[in-house]
């Protein structure tokens, strides 16, 4: 199939490429750009491992084609921190919000987007916000604790 040229921004850097239409944004990030922090679990939208931010909103990168990201501003887990860990990442680390780490980039980016909208959420709201992200290891308690702590860190920093 004819390749399509796309131009987008990934983690603050302008990227242009020629892609096959069937390449998902997740595969583009991982295979073309080498940004393998974005994980692929189910590839049909149910696990959340592939979550990235597109124009500031959390989306499933397995359910978006790279060609649909034309002109978009994409943030992956690699772009979240500049000097050391981002406060959300720090909170996951301190509160044991991960074990194997496979779900973590998706969890962190989902939590990051959620906390920008709801800086002071209840536990109930945190659980609802993370309901679309599956973790096979932690049992979620520590992830909820980490997000709660991250909210505190972000509030203290602002």
């Amino acid at each position: 199939m004819a390749r399509v040229s796309i131009g987008l921004t990934v983690n603050g850097q302008a990227v242009s490429a020629e892609v096959e239409p069937r390449v998902t944004l997740a595969d583009f990030l991982r295979d073309e750009l080498g940004l393998t922090g974005t994980k692929l679990g189910c590839e049909h939208g149910v696990c959340g491992a592939c979550t990235v931010l597109v124009d500031g909103a959390a989306v499933r990168s397995c359910l978006m084609l790279a060609v649909q990201a034309e002109g978009a501003d994409v943030l992956t887990i690699e772009g979240l921190s500049h000097n050391g860990l981002h406060p959300v990442q720090e909170a996951f680390w301190e509160h044991h919000g991960l074990q194997c780490g496979f779900c973590t980039p998706g969890m962190v980016l989902t939590a990051y987007a959620f906390l920008q909208e709801r800086p002071d959420p209840s536990d109930e709201e945190i659980r609802e916000a993370l309901a679309g992200n599956l973790c096979r290891c932690t049992g979620y308690q520590n992830i909820v604790a980490a997000v709660r702590a991250a909210a505190g860190k972000l509030a203290a920093a602002s």
Binding site: G45, G48, T51, V54, A57, A58, V59, R60, L63, M64, T110, A113, F114, A129, A131, G132
Partner: peptide
């Protein structure tokens, strides 16, 4: 309807 990342798209 789904989860926020689904509704975003």
């Amino acid at each position: 309807v789904g989860h926020p990342p689904i509704r975003n798209r």
